[in-house]
Simulated scan of single mutants.
Amino acid sequence: MISLALLHPTQLVPVQNWSWEAKSLIRIGRASDNDVIVYSAIVSRYHAELWEDRSGWMIVNFGVNGTYVDDRPIIQRSVVNEMIIRFGSSGPKIKIWTQELGSEFADKKDELSKKEIFLTNKNFPQTSFVNEDITQTDIY
């Protein structure tokens, strides 16, 4: 099992999540035929792929703006539990849980989806939202 969560840009709490139990290839990008669709101008139509093999999961970058782990661009890299990837040097972030933490994430998913987050930027007044009220379109 692998689980991914799109993180809020400032609070680093999940605003959208995906899970798969029997999938060995996951495509991420802006195009509607990806498994994970991320609406951001920084994200390429076909930005990255996650591949599972006998040794675990790998992430491969195909994006023009790059994929970053720990603020370093990657071409291909092994995925580790709770890895955070960023699309472009300043784009959206996704956190990845692999099989070992997938069931733990599933148990906490409902709790996380009700967590209050506070947004402060020029487009939003200082206010509190329950993150299920926020969509990707509101953020990016």
Rank of each mutant, 00 (worst) to 15 (best):
78 S>V: 11
84 I>Y: 02
109 K>E: 11
45 R>N: 06
101 L>T: 14
115 K>D: 05
54 R>Y: 08
119 L>P: 00
93 K>N: 10
131 N>E: 06
92 P>H: 09
71 D>F: 08
100 E>N: 13
30 R>Q: 14
88 G>Y: 04
100 E>A: 14
96 I>K: 01
91 G>V: 12
64 V>K: 15
70 D>H: 11
115 K>A: 12
62 F>R: 15
101 L>E: 13
45 R>W: 08
94 I>V: 10
122 K>N: 14
74 I>C: 06
47 H>I: 11
86 R>S: 05
38 V>Q: 03
80 V>A: 13
92 P>W: 12
112 L>F: 15
95 K>M: 11
44 S>I: 03
133 D>Q: 13
93 K>C: 13
75 I>V: 11
36 V>M: 07
57 W>D: 06
85 I>K: 00
31 A>H: 11
61 N>G: 05
62 F>Q: 14
91 G>Y: 07
117 I>Q: 01
131 N>P: 07
98 T>Q: 10
102 G>D: 14
114 K>G: 14
60 V>L: 05
75 I>G: 11
135 T>H: 06
83 M>P: 03
115 K>V: 09
133 D>P: 00
106 A>R: 14
67 T>W: 06
70 D>K: 11
114 K>H: 15
108 K>S: 09
100 E>W: 01
129 F>L: 11
126 Q>N: 13
90 S>N: 15
54 R>Q: 14
33 D>Y: 01
56 G>V: 09
102 G>V: 11
53 D>L: 02
106 A>Y: 05
129 F>R: 00
85 I>F: 02
91 G>A: 08
115 K>I: 04
29 G>Q: 02
71 D>Q: 14
39 Y>V: 10
123 N>D: 09
67 T>G: 09
121 N>I: 09
103 S>L: 10
131 N>G: 04
43 V>N: 04
33 D>F: 01
99 Q>L: 07
34 N>E: 09
56 G>Q: 07
70 D>N: 14
113 S>N: 14
48 A>F: 06
113 S>D: 11
96 I>F: 04
78 S>N: 12
39 Y>D: 15
117 I>W: 08
117 I>V: 15
61 N>C: 10
93 K>S: 12
63 G>P: 03
48 A>N: 05
38 V>T: 00
50 L>R: 10
28 I>N: 01
64 V>R: 14
93 K>Q: 14
77 R>H: 08
102 G>P: 03
68 Y>I: 03
83 M>N: 08
85 I>W: 01
103 S>E: 10
133 D>W: 07
36 V>F: 02
36 V>L: 12
64 V>S: 15
59 I>A: 02
35 D>T: 00
53 D>K: 02
133 D>Y: 10
41 A>H: 12
28 I>V: 14
61 N>M: 02
128 S>W: 04
81 N>Y: 00
105 F>N: 02
47 H>C: 06
73 P>M: 13
43 V>Y: 03
69 V>P: 01
31 A>E: 13
106 A>N: 07
35 D>F: 04
65 N>D: 07
98 T>D: 10
65 N>A: 05
97 W>G: 07
46 Y>K: 13
71 D>C: 06
127 T>N: 06
118 F>C: 10
72 R>V: 12
98 T>P: 04
122 K>F: 12
38 V>H: 02
111 E>G: 07
128 S>E: 11
40 S>C: 07
86 R>F: 07
99 Q>T: 08
